[in-house]
Design a protein around this nucleic acid. Structure first.
Lengths: 199, 199
DNA sequence: GTATATTATGAACGAGTGTTCATTAAGGGT
DNA sequence: ACCCTTAATGAACACTCGTTCATAATATAC
């Protein structure tokens, strides 16, 4: 009867509602109603509410951030580090502004402390790959002397933290209403950062 | 019968449970049981669960951060800006590590997007006073030429963001188990920051 | 076209939710 | 001592929660 994949539809609907109302605030019945089926039909696809939640996490855990924001034409710009950092930051913010990613970050912030989320959800885990990427980039820049000899870990932190804080703060407002101004602030951040570290 | 102020006890218990399980995850009965009374007795002090939640927010909104971490002997150090920034950051982190403040930040992160919290809770609001304070400090430092001519707003952001991200990440682990290492990282952050901005 | 596996339904379950209410106990003021 | 306000109780309310189950409709395979 259903043309779309019901199982996947349940998953994306659950992410949608969990990220709006929280895990406890969104009910199985609400998810089912939004999908367009009865609550009992859900259990043909997932054996519990918790399994739906864990399936969402598994889906996002399998995705890697590198391939999303790092590609060859960006890496070519490494010779022009200021431009590179600008592009890198803009891509990162744009990626974080993806509907899916917005929802997941909201879920992360909401549920990382609760019984259901504190085992599988942590900001540290979420940022670990990005941190590693940044450490590598800054290590390389230090090695080629285009950046002062700072600790790459500190540089990564200093680069990421303002961007992530910005992301979490703008997360509250409905849609990407002012992506233009956000990118402007991002650029100011990168400009300061670059002028502070350039060798 | 009760020696302690029941109304205040309900409030602090509610903050405790809300910050652990979320607003929806903690029930009136659970709060009452923890306080040591029946759930119906709660309604002699607050007329609804939502009113308890709003009372918590009101209590924290009335507190000002300046008086907690800024005092005269700290401001005297403004002549030695590096030492000042170190002390300032350490006090800030220590303040954020207060049990009360830990709980409130958790509540903030958890509920800022939900129906109940999104009107009254926002990270931007929570940080606004601190941001203002930092802008003033850095403006002063720029005026007296001990800091390069950067935008004070950017400086405030760059100074606060890594500290706040650190705070939210360490928030998940139970107690102040490794406050020593945290302060060490804070100092590294401040050292980098200072070397980046000093005039 | 019939058998089979998949997916939907509607009703029901036990438990928990926030809240109300009549009643009882306790504390303070005169 | 008394009254009166405050605070606690236990039972009940209507409702929602996650989940189960027998049953019916729908696709898929042969």
């Amino acid at each position: 009867m259903k043309l779309a994949n019901t199982k996947q539809l349940i998953l994306s609907t659950a992410l949608d509602l969990f990220s709006q109302y929280g895990y406890n605030g969104a009910s199985i019945r609400q998810i089912a109603r939004t999908v367009g089926i009865r609550e009992s039909a859900i259990y043909n696809h997932y054996k519990s509410k918790e399994e739906i939640f864990l399936a969402i996490l598994a889906e996002f855990k399998s995705k890697t951030i590198s391939e999303k924001i790092l590609n060859d034409d960006l890496l070519d710009d490494l010779s022009n580090p200021e431009k590179f950092l600008r592009n890198f930051a803009e891509r990162l913010i744009t990626f974080w502004n993806t509907p899916q990613e917005r929802k997941f970050i909201r879920l992360l912030l909401m549920e990382q402390f609760t019984r259901i989320g504190n085992k599988e959800l942590s900001t540290t885990d979420y940022l670990s790959e990005l941190r590693k990427m940044c450490r590598l980039i800054f290590s390389e820049m230090i090695k080629t002397k285009i950046v002062k000899q700072y600790d790459p870990e500190i540089l990564a932190e200093q680069f990421i933290a303002p961007l992530f804080l910005m992301r979490t703060e703008y997360l509250v407002s409905g849609e990407n209403k002012n992506m233009g101004t956000v990118i402007k602030i991002v650029n100011m951040h990168v400009d300061f950062f670059w002028s502070a570290i350039k060798g």
